[in-house]
């Protein structure tokens, strides 16, 4: 077993720096004169889908990805759960309930809690049904295989893909397009982002995925988070440039 290594020290430094940046961003947020950031386009499209679902009285589908409990190492599904929470808070009284499909047991359970919480908060627990949120597979492809038949139904108004998505998820977007069902893809998986970019679906690239702000919901959190990320990105860029200069000048080995 190793003691505290260089990696630990660097990560500690990054954490402290990040906290500092968060504090600075919080102070900057006090300045009302600063123009707010616009919502990421993908999340704006999710907002449109929510309204469309409400107007048309059709079901809105949500694919939550592979999950985070076992095989996938990203925190992306945490964000997908946040997106689900926002989405469910608007669609509990729709004619057709929103349906969620997970590719992992823990993800299915947690999203079940979120769906139940949305109905509970809207004081409509009697409308909650466990089948509104289902486990459809234990791997990326089996999850997709479970989601595709649901997408083929006629009473769907749209599909939101959010979570850890493999490049193979392109099949889902293709089928949705063939069914003329609008799709929005939001994933933290970079290869998934690259593959989904080739599709016609609006896709969230880079760290935009981690900044969910749908309509006026979660705006404060989004503005603060975006400010933090921008500041930290500047700091990192400056650090990289400095390191490159030191490396070239021979200071660093």
């Amino acid at each position: 077993m190793a003691g505290i290594s260089l990696h630990d020290l660097i990560s500690t430094l990054i954490v402290i720096l990040f906290l500092l940046v968060m504090f600075i961003a919080w102070l900057m947020g006090k300045n009302k004169k600063m123009p707010p950031y616009a919502n990421p386009e993908g999340y704006e499209r999710i907002d449109e889908l929510m309204h469309r679902s409400s107007e048309e009285g059709k079901a809105l589908l949500m694919g939550l990805g592979e999950g985070f409990s076992g095989l996938n190492g990203s925190l992306g599904d945490q964000t997908s759960l946040m997106v689900q929470r926002i989405l469910m808070s608007r669609s509990v009284f729709n004619d057709q309930p929103a349906q969620s499909y997970s590719g992992d047991g823990a993800l299915a359970c947690i999203s079940q809690m979120i769906v139940h919480g949305a109905y509970d908060k809207a004081m409509a627990v009697e409308l909650f049904r466990p089948e509104h949120n289902q486990l459809t597979g234990l791997s990326g492809l089996s999850w997709m295989a479970g989601l595709l038949p649901e997408l083929a139904r006629s009473d769907n108004t749209g599909l939101v893909l959010a979570g850890s998505l493999r490049p193979e998820s392109l099949i889902i977007t293709d089928m949705a397009e063939r069914k003329e069902i609008p799709v929005v893809a939001a994933t933290g998986d970079i290869s998934g982002q690259a593959a989904l970019f080739a599709s016609g679906a609006p896709v969230l690239l880079g760290e935009d995925y981690y900044l969910p702000a749908i309509g006026d919901i979660n705006q404060a959190s989004y503005q603060h988070s975006a400010r933090v990320l921008n500041l930290f990105r500047i700091l990192l860029a400056a650090g990289l440039l400095l390191a490159a200069f030191l490396k070239l000048s021979g200071v660093l080995p």
Binding site: I14, S74, L236
Partner: peptide, 13 residues
Amino acid sequence: IGVALGALLVGFR
């Protein structure tokens, strides 16, 4: 780096 920053932010939150 961007994704790691986002994940870090989510983790902090």
